[in-house]
Nucleic acid binder design. Structure first.
Lengths: 235, 235
DNA sequence: CACGGTATTTTGCTATAGCAAATTCGTCAA
DNA sequence: TTGACGAATTTGCTATAGCAAAATACCGTG
C-alpha cells in the first residue's frame, strides 16, 4: 500500500494493537464463531496485560464482531448469512444516501477532483493492461489502482459534506474494510478484468453529481455497490 | 416511566454509571463545549477510580460527545450548529430508510401490533384531554404517552427486520435520546396540543407499510421526523 | 440416566501504582 | 511584547492484585 504523504500520527497503543490483532483473528477464522473469548486468555496469547485487551473487546463488541451471551461471557459473533446480508443491505443504502447528499452539496472543485482521480485510474489501467501482455507481475500496480479507488470513494464521501454520515458508513464497513482489500487483490490477479465494468459507473456517478441529480446518483451508486458486494460476498 | 414487564437485567457497572453521568453533564451544559476532560478529574468528581471513567470517556468519544484534540487531551465536543444539523439530517434520512425497509419486510402481525399501540395512544390522549379540563396534573399521563410513542417507534424499527440498521439509528440518536424526552415532556405540559398534528401521520405510516408502499412510507416518516426535530431543535 | 443443588474455578470489574510522553508554565532572550 | 526553550507537572496508558459474581464441575438423589 502506498503510505500516506502525511505521516500517520496514530499513537498505536497496545489496546489498538490488540484490537487489530483480535479483529484479524476473527475475520481470518482463526477465532471461530461461537468460540468463547476471555480477557485473560487473549491477554496471554498476545503477551499483554488484560487491561488493554479489555478495551479491545469492548470495541469489537461495538463493531458487532463479539457478542455477550451472558453477564460474564463474550463469544465470537456468529454472523449468520442473514446478518451479513443485513449489513450489506445497510451499506448499500448508506452509500446511496451519501451519493444523494453529494449531489446536493458537491462543489465544482471537488467534482473536478473526482474527475482527476478517475483519470489517474484510467492511466493505471492502461499500464496494467500493457504489463499484462508481458505477463509481468502487476500486483504492485493493482494495489495502486485499489488505492485510487479508495481515494475516489473518500472524495465522494467528502462531497457529501456530512461527517456524521461518513462516520456511520465507515462503521458498517468494518467487514469489507478488514478483508475485502486482500480478496479484491486476489481476484484482480487471477482475473485481470475483474470489476472492469464498474469503471463506467464511476464516470456516470460524477456526471450525475455534477448535474445535481440525486436520483440517478443514488441509483448508480446502489447498483455499483450491490454489484461489488455480491461479487465479493456471493462467491 | 413505566418499567418494563421483564426486569431489565443490565448489570449497571460503574463504567455504565460514569458514562451516563458524564453524558448527562454534557447535554445539560454542566460540562461546557471545549472544556478539557481528564480521567482523574472526572474520577474524583464521581468518587470512583480512573479505570471505569476511562471506559466511559472512550464510549463518549465514540458517540461524538467528546473529542481528542491531542494525544493526551480530550475536550467536550463543540458541536456547532452545522454538526447538529448534519446529525439531524442523517437521523431523518435513517428513519426514512427504516420506513422503506419496514414497508418491504413488515408482517401482518407486526402491523396489527402497530395499530394496537396507536389505539392505546388514542385512549391515553382522550384521558389526558379530560384531565386537562379539570386542570389536574397530567405529567404522569404524558409520560405514559411518551412511552407509547417510544414503543411505537421501536415496533416500527422491528418491522424493518434489520438489526444492523436499527443499531445505527440508535447511535445517531444519542442526543435526542439524551435530552428530548425531558424537553418533550416540558413542552407537552405547557402546551397540551404540542405535536398533536403528528398523530395523524403515524396512522398514515401504518397504512403505507400495510400497502407495502416504500415511497410514501419514507416520505411520511421523513416529514414527521423533520417536523419533530425542527420543533425541538429549531426552538 | 436425568436432574437439582453445592463447591470449585473462572472471569469480568475495579482500585492502585508507576512509567513514559505530552502538556503546561516559568524564564529568558530577541 | 513575543517567541522559544527547558523544567516541572499533568495525564493517558499499562500492569498487577483482589473481589464479587457468574460459570463450570461435581456429586448425590430421584
Amino acid at each position: 500500500m502506498v503510505t500516506d504523504s502525511l505521516a500517520t500520527l496514530t499513537s498505536d497503543t497496545l489496546a489498538d494493537q490488540a484490537y487489530r490483532s483480535v479483529r484479524a483473528a476473527i475475520v481470518t477464522g482463526e477465532l471461530r464463531p461461537g468460540q468463547k473469548v476471555t480477557e485473560r486468555g487473549l491477554a496471554e496469547r498476545l503477551s499483554v496485560s488484560p487491561t488493554p485487551v479489555r478495551e479491545a473487546i469492548r470495541r469489537l463488541e461495538q463493531d458487532g464482531l463479539l457478542t455477550r451471551t451472558g453477564p460474564r461471557t463474550v463469544k465470537v459473533s456468529d454472523l449468520g448469512d442473514t446478518a451479513l446480508q443485513d449489513l450489506a443491505e445497510v451499506e448499500v443504502a448508506l452509500r446511496g444516501m451519501v451519493a444523494r447528499f453529494a449531489a446536493r452539496h458537491a462543489t465544482p472543485e471537488k467534482l473536478d477532483n473526482l474527475d482527476a482521480i478517475l483519470d489517474e485510474a484510467d492511466d493505471l489501467r492502461i499500464v496494467i493492461r500493457k504489463r499484462l501482455s508481458d505477463s509481468a507481475p502487476t500486483t504492485r500496480h493493482i494495489n495502486q489502482l485499489l488505492d485510487t479507488v479508495q481515494r475516489f470513494n473518500d472524495a465522494v464521501n467528502a462531497c457529501a459534506g456530512n461527517p456524521v454520515l461518513v462516520r456511520l458508513l465507515d462503521q458498517t464497513r468494518v467487514f469489507s474494510q478488514a478483508e475485502s482489500r486482500a480478496r479484491r487483490l486476489e481476484r484482480a490477479l487471477e482475473d485481470p478484468h475483474f470489476g472492469e465494468e464498474r469503471w463506467a459507473t464511476h464516470r456516470a456517478l460524477v456526471d450525475a453529481l455534477r448535474a445535481g441529480d440525486e436520483g440517478t446518483a443514488e441509483a448508480v451508486v446502489i447498483e455499483d455497490a450491490r454489484g461489488g458486494l455480491s461479487a465479493l460476498l456471493g462467491e
